[in-house]
């Protein structure tokens, strides 16, 4: 139920500094609580209603449009340093509802609900006729490309064996028979070169994540054999002080529903 039934709300300009301040706190909260997909950045404040709250404070009821960045949700890079996914890369938009409490000059997020959706194929075609569309992450070519890229990474690795956390995005380029994938990985307690049965490897207690971009080019009439390319960035282990306000990814990330563009919070 909306807060404080019976009292009227104060309308506020969406570009008012107070609206912007509340929106930035909401975005910071969102990105701190996202563990799959990509960080999001504020694109537009759609609506703001400011409800009085008994006994004190006000609740900002906000609708915010966001855009996906190119930084994975588990990447420690500050979102201000992350590029916004361009339309030609098949942009993904977030639609968020937030309730943000303002009390004693401090903003605190009370409620957040976001959904993300990729740009339409038609709009992408208008911007870039030849750019590849996002592909479903459970597409067989995508699954195959992720397996091949992760195997190639672990084969080259002198350290821990990394296992797959999630497939974040994928695109198929039919012209060159190439599948491009981006996926998140996590270090396990196995040594990559000694792994015989990956099922026996367990995630490290102190989580160490990484993010990979890979491609698999199938053998075709022009080239004799399959070609795999992969580059991974392994993130430093995030020291988590006990009272850290930052949410830590759950031990076992919940299975994301297989949809285009992972669902946000």
């Amino acid at each position: 139920a909306p807060p404080n039934l019976g009292l009227s709300y104060r309308a506020l300009d969406c570009d008012d500094p107070e609206s912007e301040q509340a929106a930035l706190v909401a975005m910071d909260y969102l990105n701190k609580n996202l563990f799959r997909g990509y960080k999001h950045t504020l694109n537009q404040i759609d609506k703001v209603k400011v409800w009085p709250r008994r006994p004190m404070g006000e609740v900002f009821e906000m609708e915010i449009d966001t855009l996906e960045t190119t930084c994975h949700a588990l990447d420690p890079t500050p979102v201000a340093n992350c590029s916004v996914r361009s339309m030609a890369e098949h942009a993904v938009e977030g639609d968020c509802d937030f309730h943000v409490l303002k009390q004693d000059g401090q903003f605190t997020v009370l409620f957040a609900k976001c959904d993300s959706s990729p740009d339409s194929a038609e709009d992408l075609r208008k911007v870039c006729p030849d750019c590849p569309l996002l592909a479903p992450v459970n597409n067989t070519k995508v699954v195959r490309a992720v397996e091949a890229a992760l195997t190639a990474f672990n084969t080259q690795s002198n350290g821990s064996y990394f296992q797959l956390v999630e497939v974040s995005r994928a695109q198929l380029v039919y012209l060159t028979h190439t599948t491009y994938v981006e996926f998140a990985i996590a270090a396990t307690d196995c040594v990559a070169k000694e792994v015989t049965d990956p099922a026996k490897c367990n995630l490290l207690a102190e989580k160490q994540y990484g993010f990979c971009k890979g491609s698999l080019t199938e053998k075709g009439p022009l080239n004799g054999n399959e070609k795999v390319a992969v580059t991974c960035t392994v993130f430093p282990i995030q020291p988590q002080p006990d009272n850290s306000p930052v949410a830590t990814p759950p031990a076992k990330l919940p299975e994301a529903p297989v949809v285009l563009g992972p669902l946000l919070l």
Partner: peptide, 27 residues
């Protein structure tokens, strides 16, 4: 405008600018 007597009612219609500005691009 229907408002509680204690709430000051703006003299004329106050235009609220929403949605706000687009910071990157609209899809």
């Amino acid at each position: 405008n229907v408002a509680q007597p204690s709430v000051a009612v703006a003299a004329g219609p106050v235009v609220h600018l929403c949605p706000g500005r687009i910071r990157h691009f609209k899809i």
